[in-house]
Amino acid sequence: MSEKAKNAISGWLIMLPALILFGFFVWEPLFESVRMSLYNAKGYTLTEFVGLANYRSLFASPDFVIAWKNTFMYIVWSLIIGFIVPIVIAVLITESPILKSVTRVAVYFPNMLPGLAIVMIWAFFLKPGDMGVLNILMSKIGIKPFTWLTTKGWTIPLIVLTMTWKSAGSTALIYMARISDINPELIEAAAIDGAGPLRRMFSIVIPSLFGLVKTMLILQIISVFQILYEPLMMTNGGPNNASVSIMMQVYRYAFDQFNYPKAAAVSVMINIVLTLITIVYFTVTREKEEAV
């Protein structure tokens, strides 16, 4: 047996425990839910094979198409509102000459609060009528109360805003780590050559972030795709389905109706869509990354 093969064997052996755990806790449930989506069930107990009937009946649900549409709207808005913010924060903090660590803690702080508490705080803040905190503040400067979350077109952007408020800081930390990896000599050299802060940012910092940006983008899409508790708590999908998300459909099938096969069917569809998005995205951007 060659040296290489021996190495390979020991490599596999080292990975073995992780693979077993991974297989048991990730793949097995995954296959199980694919299987479940093809059956009828009583509780978790599968009763009869029904093929794609669960999938077909999803399309009969009046909320199904809307939920998909909304989910994509969440993604669009999260890219508009939430994607640039952490990059800007990271660059600004890195460039800032003073109070660096204080700002770093400050932007990370919302991330330390429990997610549900944040959602409730924002729900109070954005409450319509005279009792909402934001409306009270606005009334001080003579602006009439607004209906915020209960206004159809505003619901999703506002929910995305609260998500950004919570998570931008932690994403910024990741960008900051990458920026601090950039060889300082490069930046110094550029400065000596007369490049100002803006020029340095666009010619050095941003290009070296590209690989990370690409990963963060897909991670963000995947995580926003699974948005659940924010709309569940803030609007329960309302008004009139304006903020219902596809994960809320999973939740409703599973826990409001105890219809686990249908919940599994929606989950499988989400899985397929996300896998497709990821494959397409990495194929499209591969060339560019190699160029960098």
Binding site: W12, L16, L19, I20, G23, F24, W27, E28, P29, E32
Partner: peptide, 14 residues
């Protein structure tokens, strides 16, 4: 071996 292992892991889950 790995495939057998995966099958085993899955079966143990079942």
């Amino acid at each position: 071996l790995m495939a057998a292992l995966m099958v085993f892991a899955m079966l143990s889950g079942c």
